[in-house]
Amino acid sequence: MRMSLAPRRAVAALAAVLLAGGMAACGNSDTGTDEGGSGDGKIVMGFSQVGAESGWRTANTNSIKEAAAEAGIELKFDDAQQKQENQIKAIRNYIQQKVDVIAFSPVVESGWDTVLKEAKDAGIPVILTDRAVDSADKSLYKTFLGSDFVKEGRLSGEWLVEQMKSATGDVNIVELQGTTGSAPANDRKKGFGEAIAADPKLKVIASQSGDFTRAGGKQVMEQFLKAHPKIDVLFAHNDDMGLGALEAITAAGKEPGKDIIIITIDAVKDGMQALADGKFNFIAECSPLLGPQLMELAKKVHAGEEVPPRIETEETTFTQEQAKEALPNRKY
Rank of each mutant, 00 (worst) to 15 (best):
M272D: 10
S54H: 06
T313I: 13
L160Y: 00
V174K: 02
A132P: 00
R8T: 09
E74V: 11
T61W: 10
A276I: 10
F104K: 04
Q84N: 05
T129C: 02
E74R: 08
I91P: 00
A13D: 01
G72C: 09
I260S: 11
T317S: 13
G27D: 06
M45I: 07
A119K: 06
V44M: 03
E325P: 06
K203D: 06
S139N: 13
N238T: 10
L289S: 11
G146W: 07
A67K: 05
D199W: 00
S166H: 08
L75E: 08
L289N: 13
D30I: 01
M23G: 04
D113W: 02
S105K: 04
K324Q: 14
G210F: 09
K254A: 12
S105F: 03
N172Q: 11
L294I: 11
K165E: 15
S182D: 07
D79M: 07
A183H: 06
I64R: 08
A67F: 06
G242V: 02
M272S: 11
S156D: 05
L155N: 10
M23A: 13
S209N: 07
K83Q: 11
G253C: 10
V17K: 04
L290R: 10
T313S: 15
E255Q: 15
G39W: 10
F235Q: 00
G36M: 12
Q163V: 09
M221Q: 04
A197E: 15
V99Q: 05
K76Y: 09
D130L: 03
Q208K: 13
T168Y: 00
G244A: 06
A195N: 04
A68T: 09
R2F: 09
P288W: 11
K151E: 14
G181P: 11
D240Q: 02
F47K: 01
M45A: 10
E325R: 11
E66I: 11
R310V: 13
A252D: 15
T33F: 08
F280T: 09
L155H: 05
T319P: 12
A248N: 06
L243R: 01
L19N: 00
A20I: 05
D79C: 04
I261E: 09
A251D: 14
R8Q: 09
H302Y: 13
P184A: 07
I249C: 08
